[in-house]
Design a protein around this nucleic acid. Structure first.
Length: 769
DNA sequence: ATGTTTGCGCTTTTT
DNA sequence: GCGCAAACAT
């Protein structure tokens, strides 16, 4: 047997060996929380608890996987049987089993945020509401917020406070939209993310026999990152633990950073009250093993100002370590350069690897300057977050096919694939079918499946072809495993062929992505941890993946990590750079405006600081191109853009006589393009390029030479799909806001680097001092 | 029905 | 910049 107990400190041991009854572990940052949790589970198993009767809820799939792995090292393969995963994945699994009880079938679809918003968009349109007033994003977040507080559509409509709220927000019909949204999701046999939790609550509320089954089944319930649970999640755990009273929650109130998503810090603050003060055992893990004294003290001093918190004193026996550095940069680009060279220097001086470094920022958009600077210094980096693999169009397309094959009620999947690849079924036809379906009170699929009975003509034949295709796919479901079905669908649907025929660079990449998805399905089928290998099971696991779960793209893992602070939770690095530390950016102006929650921003800062083991560097820029981003795009698209702009410019036959990129204060808002003198476009391009070369920093200017013949001549390259390396500059326009708040159009530069095109834009400028 | 162009609004964090 | 939708053209 592995002796893991003797290496633990006192409170850690108490937590691991605690027997029955509610247990709350307050785990300061770096206090060995994961260790305690894994050992506790291992300890329970060694002491005779059946792994099938342990429920462990984590925040990410990755955390669950890692923990399972570590438990396996102690207790062996038994660890596989633990019910462990995120709230969403575990309860999706339970809902699959119990779907019938709440009127769903077990192959229900899971709508991701895009699906939800697309459905909301249709509903808003159908209801004849103004989509400029009813913004999809705000409607979605209102509905999501309601669901997280367990307020269903009818409660929502009957709640005077909420109605008054919507009234004053000038969106009085949100309740009706919500109601319709729920009806449509249900009709589509689909649940969104929030529904997975909401419906679990409904299931347990309305079906006491089912609740009873799980209450007795789960002898031990563990919740990791308890500070980030919302009311809906909290109630589920509370119900499940009601019989055995064996609930163990682990968390750190100081690291609660998801209130914007409905997380309720009260859950952790009130745990004792809810389970009875005398029954709850509280263990505080206060010794930090991760960071230097300097870092721990810095973190403590930030959090000390918060009012809402549990009492604890995080300390460390580690050495003092180096002082915290602050880098002041004049612009965001300089910040990038300074951080990159600081990383380079530290790496050399202390013979470290890229892996030892992380750059943490408040918003994803900030990554640009750092990417650029790191690339220039040939330091490898990886970005966590942003657009994930599963959000790519080609992936979503194939998944929509798979989803529709499994569940023909899935309206969003249907909309996506009905005319993909193009088969001559347009919007009017789809609208016609919807009308017929509504008249006959049938689902759309019932009409589509027997289209010839309802409609005749050319479009009917096309739809019949589609219906036959889906019918043939359905037949495979029971005969073949998920991988075989999926690859058949990819081929037979024509999706794969369409991508294969596309010989452009991006077409090739898309083709490979689809292959990659098929590989992932194969892996899923081959993985012994997955007891169910159906396509439906795969789809559910896939919809609940997070950006943190993405696997490493290649073998080279020695990279500097760039990510948001939120994404960094649970990770640690020797050296951490917290960047963009400016008023309104971090702390975020939006957060302060919308929620007025400076405390959460402080906790976010706390999380960021405590990721560092040895060295912490903070930086800020005096001038920042706030929404300026460096984006990758393919050469062909780039050329198209250039071409468009060029033509537009030729048409206008005018150009600004004065352009200033670097210094907004010197901008001349009174002058705009229309009143400028008419100049030849090429001359304008040249002067623009020269001007920019001058105003940019010397090293940038040196590497960029204006190319006189970049625009129309390159269209040929677009057609042949060749790489274009000689194009150096292009231009476009963006809105720019100067210090006085005056808006004007500004010209931006396109900058081509190698095979990728980088679009460098300066928009909505804001100066921070 | 489909392809192309143009204009508009948005842009915190994410299961 | 991006995604989207409306307008316009084929």
């Amino acid at each position: 047997m592995v002796d893991y107990i003797s290496g633990l400190n006192d409170p850690q041991r108490q937590a691991v060996m605690h027997g029955d009854g509610p247990l709350m572990i307050i785990a300061g940052a770096g206090s060995g929380k994961t260790r305690v949790l894994t050992y506790r589970i291992a300890y329970l198993i060694e002491n005779g608890i059946d792994p099938f009767r342990i429920l462990a809820l984590t925040f990410t799939n990755k955390a669950a996987g890692e923990m399972r792995h570590r438990i396996e090292k102690v207790v062996g393969t038994e660890a596989r049987n633990i019910w462990m995963g995120t709230f969403h994945s575990v309860f999706a699994k339970i809902l699959r089993i119990e779907a019938r009880a709440i009127g769903y079938t077990s192959n229900f679809s899971i709508y991701d945020t895009d699906d939800s918003k697309s459905l909301l968009r249709s509903i808003i349109k159908e209801m004849g509401l103004d989509d400029k007033v009813y913004r999809v994003n705000s409607v979605f977040s209102r509905i999501s917020g309601a669901k997280n507080r367990l307020i269903g559509p009818d409660d929502y409509l009957n709640n005077a406070v909420i109605q008054a709220d919507d009234e004053s927000a000038r969106m009085p019909h949100i309740g009706r939209i919500y109601k319709q949204y729920s009806v449509r999701c249900f009709a589509a046999n689909a649940m969104d993310f929030d529904d997975l939790l909401f419906n679990t609550n409904v299931l347990f509320r309305d079906h006491l026999d089912i609740l009873n089954k799980y209450q007795h089944k789960f002898q031990q319930v563990m919740v990791d990152e308890f500070q980030d649970t919302n009311i809906s999640q909290y109630l589920i755990t509370r119900k499940l633990a009601a019989v055995h009273q064996n609930i163990c929650v682990v968390g750190d109130d100081a690291q609660s950073i998801y209130a914007f998503r409905g997380a309720n810090i009260e859950n952790i603050l009130n745990f004792q009250r809810d389970y009875g003060k005398e029954n709850v055992k509280i263990v505080k893990l206060e010794q930090n093993y991760r960071s230097t004294k300097t870092i721990v003290e810095a973190a403590n001093s930030i959090i000390a100002r918060n009012k809402q918190q549990l009492e604890k004193h995080v300390f460390t026996d580690n050495e003092d370590g180096p002082p915290i550095d602050v880098i002041k940069a004049s612009s965001d680009n300089e910040e990038g350069r300074l951080v990159a060279s600081a990383i380079f220097e530290t790496k050399m001086n202390e013979s470290l690897t890229n892996n030892d470094f992380a750059i943490l920022y408040r918003t994803n958009a900030q990554s640009r300057a750092f990417e650029e600077a790191l690339r220039k210094m040939s330091i490898k980096y990886r970005i966590i977050g942003g657009l994930s693999f599963y959000q790519r169009k080609e992936i979503k397309d194939l998944i929509a096919y798979l989803r529709f094959t499994v569940n023909q009620q899935d309206e969003e999947a249907f909309k996506r694939i009905i005319n993909l690849p193009k088969r001559g079924i347009g919007d009017t036809t789809v609208a016609k079918i919807s009308v017929i379906a509504a008249e006959k009170q049938d689902s759309i699929w019932e009409i589509v499946a027997e289209i010839t009975k309802h409609v005749a003509g050319r479009s009917a034949i096309a739809i019949e072809g589609f219906a036959d295709l889906i019918k043939s796919f359905k037949l495979l479901l029971d005969q073949k495993d998920a991988y075989e079905v999926a690859s058949h669908i990819a081929k037979a649907s024509g999706l794969l062929k369409e991508l294969y025929d596309d010989k452009t660079v991006e077409g090739l990449a898309r083709y490979e992505n689809v292959q990659e998805l098929l590989n992932a399905i194969k892996e899923f089928v081959d993985n012994p941890d997955n007891e169910e290998k159906s396509l439906a099971a795969f789809l559910q696991s896939v919809s609940l993946l997070t950006s943190a779960d993405e696997k490493e793209d290649d073998g080279d893992n020695d990279k500097v990590t760039l990510m948001t602070i939120h994404a960094a939770k649970g990770l640690e690095f020797k050296n951490v750079h917290i960047v963009g530390m400016e008023e309104d950016l971090f702390p975020s102006q939006m957060m302060l405006e919308s929620r007025n929650d400076l405390e959460e921003e402080r906790r976010l800062f706390y999380v960021a600081i405590t990721r560092a083991e040895k060295r912490l560097t903070m930086s800020y820029a005096e001038t920042r191109y706030h929404y300026g981003r460096l984006k990758m795009c393919e050469p062909s698209r780039f050329l198209m853009e250039i071409d468009q702009r060029y033509l537009k410019m030729s048409k206008l036959r005018s150009a600004p006589s004065r352009m200033d990129f670097d210094r907004p204060e010197r901008a001349n808002p009174g002058r705009d393009r229309s009143e400028s003198t008419s100049t030849g476009s090429m001359a304008f391009v040249r002067s623009l390029a020269q001007k920019t070369a001058r105003t940019q920093t010397p090293q940038t200017a040196a590497t960029h030479t204006p190319s006189p013949d970049f625009a129309p001549s390159n269209t040929a390259d677009l057609a042949s799909g060749q790489r274009v390396e000689h194009a150096k500059f292009g231009f476009g326009t963006v809105k720019q806001v100067d210090v006085n708040g005056t808006e004007r159009k500004a010209t931006i530069l396109f900058d081509v680097v190698g095979e990728k095109t980088l679009l460098l834009s300066f928009a909505k400028l804001r100066v921070v001092t």
